[in-house]
Write a protein that binds this DNA or RNA. Sequence first.
DNA 1: CTCGTGAACTTACGGGCGTTAGCTTATGTC
DNA 2: GACATAAGCTAACGCCCGTAAGTTCACGAG
Lengths: 212, 212
Amino acid sequence: MVTTVTNTEPRRRNRRGEGGKLREEIIEAAVALLDEGGDERAVTLRSVARKVGIAAPSIYPHFSDQPSIMLAVVQREMDSLTSVLREADENAAPDARARLFAVCNAYLDFARQHPQRYRIMFGGLWTPSTEDTSITDADLDSLGVAAFTLLVEVLGACVEEGIAHGSDDLFGDSVALWLGLHGLAHQRAVVRKMPGPDDVGDRLITALAHLK
Amino acid sequence: MVTTVTNTEPRRRNRRGEGGKLREEIIEAAVALLDEGGDERAVTLRSVARKVGIAAPSIYPHFSDQPSIMLAVVQREMDSLTSVLREADENAAPDARARLFAVCNAYLDFARQHPQRYRIMFGGLWTPSTEDTSITDADLDSLGVAAFTLLVEVLGACVEEGIAHGSDDLFGDSVALWLGLHGLAHQRAVVRKMPGPDDVGDRLITALAHLK
DNA sequence: CTCGTGAACTTACGGGCGTTAGCTTATGTC
DNA sequence: GACATAAGCTAACGCCCGTAAGTTCACGAG
């Protein structure tokens, strides 16, 4: 079922000074196109415009080119992911082990609930080699730092509480833990059905965090 | 540098009965386009034809559509990966620990040497939702089974030799190990530079195989 | 030598894309 | 009520894509 609504009716123009609203609508439309299940090829400048109900060139005052729409989407979703993780951390029981599992499972849940978003967030193909686009390396490097920092913090708490055999390299251990989570999250996002037991997630966490 | 050779000169026609040769040439051209560093969007039916030096419609006798070229590429590369792993296994010292590290590192090396290939092999976006294409679910499910089986075998050897705390679920443990490897391999294939220590790979293997 | 046929070609259609240039119209101030 | 301007529109450009239809040409069997 391809829902190409086309949206006739020329759209109620935004009030003076509220032109910026359109920027948000554009990002949301791009996310919606992703969620609808097609791959990221479905997110073109024109398809986004159609979804919002505006003419294609009306995007240019808000985004310099198509890749920068994608960058905005990824940045927004990274922020969203960070919020989800923080919330999970705060709602968890105050002991380090519970916090670690809460955060890691929240991560996995996010990926499961929004596979398409997860794919472009970490799939790395939305940047056509960083030539010809307005995207800088700094833009890319800063992605996901906040979320990762939270993971480091929670794993660090486990070491401090003595429930994990911390090596002398907390950062490296955190990277390894994240890579495991990412492997599972990505694979789930990509294939229809994952083989393996249901508790793979917990096994990964336990093994990679070196929980006692 | 975009090498669009265009290749005038109408190509030496294949001998009778050797039409199948072209099929291989098409797959190799597609792989070459990938390796040249563009993303998979660079692999279009027409660009492949240009690379081979044939007219675009000449592909149809060999592949029913563009996605099936991609499927053939992935199948070929999966076979190639399996060979690489088997070779690494056979050339390793005969003890289980050495075999495990040899196979896992060979996996990681493959991904590092051919990041673009790895991306489409496991990136899962080359199938436009399996509608409108000639690709079946069986095609997809059978991918990579041979390579994974080898991993199960090698990890099993570790448990048998008593150098790994095997749980009662060898298959599940193997999935977890593979997911860790995949997370690292994929991330390396996707970003310019991976943060974290150089020995993340070994850490992942040690932790996920539960080596003593 | 003929001639069927497999292998690949030429031409062409219709469609989607990103982007540029210039126009229209609602808004809210004076 | 006039009018400056922000907000968005229409039209059009050139490009590349996938695919259909019909054509040419060399191989090799008879």
